[in-house]
């Protein structure tokens, strides 16, 4: 019977959305589910994890060096713990991708990255070639180390469970790596990977200033703002806006692509969205091949018009 350890991603105050999808993936594998919450002053996160349905036990590890844990420190803690489990799961975010391969190497097992489906306890589906193919892979190792793509699984409910919270002694800090600082983009808008609606801008916007046109639409829809790689490379918006193969993978209810041509690597990041709208003045743009609704128009005219149309009560 499976015995799954989930490594929670959090900011010491709240559980990350990706963790909720990871809980759903664990439920599909079956068996007992424990959640590790390693952080600093993060009791509220441990309590939130204990309330997740299906979680048997929360392991809560506190240490100052877990406030912004390095991959080295996370891996040391998880590698020790993992030996008692059949599966170790974490979200396939920059958090999970950073330390999980270190855990796998420490255990001398393979890692299965970025799964979007569970076939059985040892067989998983994962995208390769930027999502242009889906591989079904089977792991032969005793411990399966797996990162979970959040858009592949619905988020688990956040209440209904009543797991015990046990404290787990921290491992000593490894001084080969030190956290120095962090600069996070602050925004009142929803988080890109968790938003129900995403409005993204591309090279067609022409400048960072023009992204205000995107932001005004986003604010009317309660949407997150994204961007294509071209827009990020051009310096219009910061890197954490990027939707695509090497940026964020999103699958909202509604994705509005504005001034984005639709390069393969961008499509890899958004093609699982439920409804896709494309606004582009080039009617040959590849984005129209996958859009549910396409509007061939100059975005500088269409966006203000869209804004006033949304203001009319529907």
């Amino acid at each position: 019977m499976a015995n799954v350890l989930i490594i929670a991603e959090h900011d010491n105050a709240a559980l990350g959305q990706g963790t909720l999808s990871t809980v759903t993936a664990a439920a599909e594998i079956g068996g007992d589910v424990d959640v590790l919450v390693a952080g600093h002053d993060c009791r509220s996160v441990a309590d939130a994890a204990a309330a997740l349905p299906g979680v048997a036990r929360v392991l809560h590890s506190e240490a100052p060096h877990y406030e912004h844990p390095t991959a080295e420190d996370m891996a040391a803690l998880v590698t020790e713990l993992a030996r008692g489990y059949s599966h170790v799961l974490a979200p396939a975010s920059t958090f999970g991708k950073n330390f999980l391969p270190r855990v796998a190497a420490g255990l001398d097992v393979a890692m299965v990255s970025d799964i979007v489906g569970v076939e059985s306890a040892d067989t998983f589906r994962r995208p390769i070639y930027a999502g242009n193919a889906i591989a079904t892979v089977q792991s032969q190792d005793a411990i399966k180390v797996v990162s979970v793509r959040a858009t592949g699984f619905d988020p688990a409910a956040t209440e209904g469970g009543s797991a015990a919270v046990e404290s787990l002694e921290a491992m000593p800090h490894a001084d080969i790596a030190e956290f120095v600082d962090e600069s996070l983009t602050s925004s009142d808008r929803p988080e890109l990977t968790a938003a129900e609606i995403v409005v993204s801008g591309g090279r067609g916007l022409g400048s960072g200033e023009n992204f205000q046109l995107i932001e005004r639409i986003a604010d009317r829809l309660g949407a997150a703002v994204g961007a294509s790689r071209a827009a990020v490379d051009a310096g219009f918006v910061p890197n954490d806006y990027q939707v695509g193969q090497t940026g964020k993978i999103v699958a909202p209810k509604l994705y509005i692509a504005v001034g984005i041509s639709g390069a393969i690597q961008h499509l890899a990041g958004m093609k699982d969205s439920k409804v896709v709208v494309a606004i582009n003045k080039d009617e040959e743009a590849p984005i129209f091949e996958i859009a549910d609704y396409g509007l061939v128009a100059d975005l500088f005219e269409a966006l203000p018009e869209l804004e006033s149309e949304l203001d009319k009560t529907g």
């Binding site: 912004h68 390095t70 975010s93 920059t94 958090f95 790596a177 030190e178 956290f179 120095v180 600082d181 962090e182 600069s183 996070l184 983009t185 990977t193 910061p238 890197n239 954490d240 964020k248």
Partner: peptide
């Protein structure tokens, strides 16, 4: 490059 912005180690 991390999900929320940038981090330095």
């Amino acid at each position: 490059e991390v999900d929320g912005g940038t981090q330095t180690v």
